[in-house]
Amino acid sequence: MTETKQRIKAVFDNYERFVETLKKLAAENSLDIEIFSPMPVPEAERLFPQKPSRVRWFTFFGGILGVIIGFAFPVYTALQWPIITGGKPVVTIQVFVIIAFELLILFGAIFTLLGLLISARLPRQNLRNYDVRFSDNSFGVIILTDESHAAELQHLMQEADELIVDQVEVEKSIDR
């Protein structure tokens, strides 16, 4: 199922004008917007607030998994050969804390990477809507909108150095 939408692409060479435009756009409701920048833009974070990233849950559960494995595995292997040496208990929890700690970090880090890749939808081949200038010193705003709103939004973004409007076919349930 597809529908026709207007895609407005604005490219800014000037940071201040870019931020000014973002402020104007932030007043609009339910905007289908993508903001491109060569570095993180705190104003974009503030004006278009997002839910806290899911990545932290990946880290959290990765860490817990690491701790569980870090205790369970040494305990299991120690019990496979339960010979007391040096008068010490076979299952020496204090010592296994070290293994558990290292695996907490290891699994936490690996799951953080997984979380980042899944949340940011990476790796990907299709650089949708991307422009190579966005990795240089230009900033971009791309908005998908109905025809009825297009003119108004274009007006808001008139300070852009480049403004391109075209018709695109988008799938209705597009996963962004």
Binding site: R56, I105, A109, T112, G115, A120, L122, P123, Q125
Partner: peptide, 28 residues
Amino acid sequence: AMGWRGTHKQWHHYETAYLLFAALATPL
């Protein structure tokens, strides 16, 4: 680059992940 586009959503997740990596690497 793994298909990095530099959108505000990607930066949002990236910055969280970077902070978490730093937080894990410090005690490590």
